[in-house]
Design a protein around this nucleic acid. Structure first.
Length: 302
DNA sequence: TCCCATTATGCTTAAGTGCC
DNA sequence: GGCACTTAAGCATAATGGGA
């Protein structure tokens, strides 16, 4: 077990949730991810051992060694793996999806959550999803409408790709039927708004954009994902869902849910049935996961 | 086809700034 | 002078494109 509270799983288990990567046209295992988790756990354990009294400790001493307490990588891996390895995985996930999206999946031709989950479910941490070709073309044609700093505009000259892949925090994927949930997880931080060449673009819009794009070239089973059967899920602390105006994502989620056409404004290169897309956006809290499965987020046991 | 430098995102971490 | 807050730098991973 890597850590009893923040990552109660083995290294092998954790490693199995990272996607294969494309190296010289071949899909190969990637083993690089472990080091970050192991180092962070080691810093934390050592710090606690040498500093048994926590009260009154200044932030400058604790911030780095105690990063794990607020690290979204750990929150995400730990919480989602707990659900993934739960003996009642399908029941747990169904409860969560009903809370986020309603009694029936907001997907055409899909009648039940059971149908979504039947088959072969995978959980991936930190998968990369390429920026859609249609967006990159559009940005190339509209660059000066989206940026205004000379040296940035100059650097775009001659570049093929004006946006890199979006690294989503996690993804559930059913490789039998293409059903997927793309997950953006937050602890204290807000969504990103600072990609290189588009000052208007926000992280949720990017997530929705890559959700709507096929990924035929990605390593299996990521290439099996059906964009028409993919949902977007935001996971945050309950505190910020109760106080949505404390974060940019609070404003954006409310806007996208109550006024679907606002998605069109943020994704001008696409024409979609935005009302339908809007229904595919969900927001859950870490506390929701804990309500469904007590073993989730053990650090919230206070 | 392979290698490798470059560059993208998405964070964490360190350095700089200024308040009490 | 010791902090917390703010901003910049740094790091990790992975994709990409050019050259051998």
């Amino acid at each position: 077990m890597m850590h009893p509270v923040y990552l109660p799983f083995s290294e092998e288990q954790l490693l199995s949730h990272f996607t294969d990567i494309n190296k010289n046209g071949r899909c190969v295992k990637n083993v690089k991810h472990l080091r970050y988790y192991k180092q962070s756990i080691e810093r934390y354990v050592n710090y606690l051992k040498n500093n048994p009294i926590a009260r009154g400790k200044p932030l400058k001493d604790t911030r780095t060694p105690c990063q794990i307490e607020k690290d979204e990588r750990f929150w995400t891996a730990s919480c989602l793996m707990t659900i993934f390895y739960s003996q009642h995985r399908a029941v747990d996930l169904t409860k969560l999806f009903i809370k986020a999206y309603g009694n029936t999946p907001p997907l055409k031709g899909v009648n039940s959550w059971e149908e979504c989950l039947e088959g072969e479910l995978h959980l991936f941490l930190k998968p990369n999803l390429p920026s859609p070709e249609s967006y990159k073309r559009w940005l190339r044609e509209n660059l000066t409408k989206r940026h205004f700093i000379p040296h940035v505009l100059n650097s775009a000259d001659g570049k093929v790709n004006l946006e890199g892949p979006t690294n989503v925090d996690a993804m559930f994927l059913n490789s039998k039927n293409g059903f997927a949930v793309i997950i953006e997880a937050k602890v204290l931080s807000d969504i990103s708004y600072d990609v290189t060449y588009d000052t208007i673009r926000n992280q949720i819009a990017r997530n929705v954009d890559v959700m709507l794009e096929e990924n035929r070239k990605l390593c299996p089973p990521l290439n099996k994902r059906d964009p028409e059967k993919t949902l977007f899920l935001l996971i945050t602390p309950k505190l910020f869902r109760d106080n949505p105006s404390s974060r940019l994502y609070g404003y954006k989620m409310r806007e996208y849910k109550t006024n679907p056409e606002s998605l069109a404004a943020d994704l001008p290169h696409r024409s979609c049935n935005w009302e339908e897309i809007s229904k595919r956006l969900g927001w859950l809290t870490w506390e929701d996961f804990k309500d469904v499965n007590k073993n989730c987020c053990l650090w919230l046991n206070k």
